[in-house]
């Protein structure tokens, strides 16, 4: 039986090679051999591997495609061992995730996979216009909203969402991400977001911090 550290390294290696069979076998053998629950394996093996991959992306050591494939494979495996309807999943806080009328949904997809892999349930709104987001914030009682944008004008349009939240006093926390925020590190404050996530892992840390 492998040590946790070795399992993490092997899982990371398999994920970066897009080798789902090996990745699944590492996760399942940890579940069976160590007779621990799913969340223990998530905390000790899967999350550290994904976090390491996220940091490698942040440092420019791997490409976006590798981070995407790693998160996708992990999400598929997690959904098999911990289906979305499993009551052990965390449905609190109410998390929404969206892009603004933009089909570039990769960043959103990676973050969603990462949060799913951590056992969070979240509502993916796909790509919707501002007015629809406002509706959803109220009707779905969204507590944390991730918004990813590719273009500057869409990033600036987030101001409308944060203004709505302030007016309606919904207390929704808005976490922004995407290319414009990477090239202007003051932009997230300008649109009155609560935080900016440079990476998917960064987004995950922010939400964990918000939950205390």
């Amino acid at each position: 039986m492998e040590s946790d550290k070795k399992s993490v390294l092997n899982l990371e290696d398999a994920l970066l090679k897009t080798d789902k069979i090996t990745a699944e076998s590492i996760i399942r053998s940890n579940l069976l051999d160590k007779q621990v629950d799913v969340f223990k394996v998530i905390d000790l093996i899967i999350s550290p591997a994904l976090e390491s991959i996220g940091h490698k992306w942040e440092n420019g050591d791997i490409a976006l495609s590798q981070e995407y494939m790693a998160s996708k494979i992990t999400e598929e495996i997690i959904n098999e061992i911990l289906p979305p309807e499993n009551p052990m999943r965390t449905s609190k806080p109410n998390i929404g995730i969206t892009t603004l009328e933009d089909q570039h949904m990769l960043g959103k997809q990676i973050l969603k996979s990462l949060l799913n892999s951590k056992g969070f349930n979240l509502t993916d709104y796909g790509s919707i216009p501002i007015e629809k987001i406002k509706e959803k914030i109220k009707s779905d009682n969204i507590e944390v909203l991730f918004i990813s944008t590719l273009m500057l004008n869409q990033a600036l349009a987030i101001k409308e969402v944060t203004k709505f939240i302030e007016l309606e006093k919904t207390n929704t926390k808005v976490i922004v991400g995407g290319a414009p925020f990477l090239f202007d590190d003051r932009l997230w404050k300008e649109v009155n977001a609560n935080a900016m996530a440079k990476t998917a892992v960064g987004g995950m840390y922010i939400i964990q911090e918000m939950m205390g």
């Binding site: 897009t18 495609s65 995407y68 996708k72 089909q103 570039h104 949904m105 990769l106």
Partner: peptide
């Protein structure tokens, strides 16, 4: 292809 079929499907296709 990200405009033709979406970025995620494109990566799936490449890999």
């Amino acid at each position: 292809p990200p405009m033709q079929l979406g970025f995620d499907k494109y990566f799936d296709l490449i890999y």
